[in-house]
Design a protein around this nucleic acid. Structure first.
Lengths: 343, 343
DNA sequence: TAGCGTCCCGAAAAGGGTTTCGTGGAGTTT
DNA sequence: AAACTCCACGAAACCCTTTTCGGGACGCTA
């Protein structure tokens, strides 16, 4: 019968008291020695450090947190972990926090208000120092309230309460930049195919696109074609757009998926990209853009930066400098072969 | 200059002592009242509950954890948050833990051993009750060691140490199931295009596919075509396969991306799918499969289940029943139009 | 009315760590 | 030798909660 440590009762994790006993000092002295405080004799400090090393002592962060009133943890309350927006935001935030000494508690509420409340209570009882709430759509969401004991930053989906701090992507700018990129390439007959009109992301991008055209004294070719965020819609709408306006020379597609569908239809109809029609998408989702034929130019919404900015604002708020209102993160055009040949 | 309460110094979070004071009882009595312990007069209990409600008291989980020696948190140490494998595993685990009262601390080591050690120390100092380590490849990884003070479950990438507990996807079965699906449809001339030969996932799937053919007295048409996990390779390899074996009637593609490339090439060459050639992919990545023309049949690797199983094994281990060795979760074929017309 | 049992409640300890403050000893000065 | 200073260490208090245990008040019985 094996009685190896591996299967036997797990050894109690060593405490500062163990370190102090081995080093032959009191617990407070051991604490001071390990934390680099003054008033400890160099020889004593070394003995304590050796003892700590010997038993692989790690200070119990929980005990420290109780004293300090700060846990060094933040809650990341997402609503659509599955979606492609939450993940890069989460990565950016994890990155920004991890660089400091913050740890991230992750919860997925899955768009369920009940579950969100449940997780909120759990996070608060764990005494997180702050909270980032990540939405799954750009449409405003209800605030968690002003009475929370910790600061909150809303990411992607802004809070409906302007007193809250929200970090969002700038969809109007994104639409504008997309069109400006096309205009800069000499295109002038631009059509727009996009997703569900119920999404403010779709409406905002259309607004930006039309504004950029208006600034150049132009208009969209044909109506804004709202539909769904799918390749199938991209294919169907592109057929319709070409049928109605055979002379269009650029397509702004509301998402990379729609753009992929558009590319397929253009290819099927023998329309050359980018020579005859330039195509641009949104989101810069690598798996879709780089594999397309030709590779797809896309507006990168900078989700990871958004996550980092949200984390930074939260750290600021925890430090006593809360921000209020909505802040938009800049976007950028990733140029590939669907707008510039050979790019 | 606003001096509203919102921007002022944040109120100290209420403690059990506050509740006790308001209710006019001692702290222990308040504790017993709120925790449903006996030996509390009903009237007293109600007074305490009212007081707690009144100041939105939430017990400090940290203090409870120090007493109990259990924090109710687990560490999720991923290496490729960006990849499409980690996320569903993470979701499954979050789901399984969240249903209990476990909270998840998320860290991303990004394939960096230094960063992994750093995060490991941070998690241990937070006294997590257990750890799930998610790899980014199916190839075995070095163990974190047997001397850790908490149980560890490895997910996706198994530990090289068989004494550890690892949960993996069954790539051999996946390859076998893919071929069996095709054989069941009456196909007999099956070619295999897959990704980087350096990935055990690619080799294992090929092994399973060849085994299933051998069991039916058949062989692969042409060699296993290893390449990269990209649409471009799928397109190129499909051309090569068709040139060498124009009579093939089924393509097993090592990933959905490769399969998308294959579909494009088949379409370009006027080969009908699934009538002339059936195509099957792996991973069942929705954005790729459902948007394909026709929709792509794919082997679902059940990542979310993998995450849930890993979470369950970890909970078992924390409860004193550790599992050892490697456990594979079952996979399943999601049938769509690329193998069965109209499906 | 003395004694006994119940029912509630609170004092004390525990858990791991940090901080404040007091004290003992050694070394220095007059 | 007495007085003083300074260094290094430890006792005690603290953070928040839970658990154990002791005891006061009360009602009931003999």
């Amino acid at each position: 019968m094996s009685t190896s440590g591996h299967t036997g009762p797990r050894a109690r994790t060593p405490t500062l008291r163990d370190v102090a006993r081995i080093a032959g000092v009191s617990v407070p002295t051991a604490s001071k020695a390990l934390n680099g405080r003054a008033d400890v004799h160099p020889d004593t400090r070394r003995r304590v450090q050796d003892a700590a090393e010997q038993i692989s002592f790690t200070p119990n962060t929980l005990a420290q947190a109780i004293l300090a009133g700060q846990t060094g943890t933040v809650g990341l309350l997402t609503n659509d972990l599955d979606g492609r927006f939450s993940l890069p935001i989460l990565m950016g935030a994890e990155d920004a926090f991890g660089a400091g000494k913050m740890s991230v508690l992750l919860c997925d509420a899955r768009e369920d208000a009940i579950r969100e409340q449940y997780h909120l209570r759990a996070l608060l009882s764990r005494r997180v120092d702050g909270l980032i709430v990540v939405g799954s759509r750009t449409d405003p969401r209800t605030s968690l309230g002003r009475e929370l004991p910790v600061p909150v930053v809303y990411a992607y989906a802004p809070s409906a309460d302007d007193a809250d701090c929200s970090i969002i992507v700038d969809n109007v700018s994104a639409g504008r930049l997309a069109v400006e990129h096309l205009l800069g390439l000499g295109r002038a007959r631009v059509a727009h195919i996009t997703g569900d009109v119920g999404y403010s992301a779709a409406r905002d991008r259309a607004t930006g696109a039309e504004a950029a055209l208006a600034a150049a004294g132009l208009e969209l070719v044909g109506p804004v074609r709202y539909g769904s965020w799918s390749e199938a819609w991209g294919r169907a709408a592109t057929h319709a757009a070409l049928d109605q306006n055979p002379d269009l020379d650029a397509l702004v597609c509301g998402s990379d998926q729609i753009a992929r569908g558009a590319l397929d239809t253009l290819r099927d109809r023998g329309v050359r990209v980018p020579e005859d029609v330039a195509v641009i998408g949104f989101d810069n989702w690598d798996v879709l853009t780089s594999a397309a034929r030709p590779p797809l130019t896309s507006v990168d919404m900078n989700f990871e930066l958004l996550g980092r900015v949200a984390a930074q604002r939260l750290v600021d708020a925890i430090g006593g400098n809360p921000a209020h209102g909505v802040e938009a993160v800049p976007v950028r055009v990733m140029v590939r072969g669907s707008t510039v040949a050979g790019a």
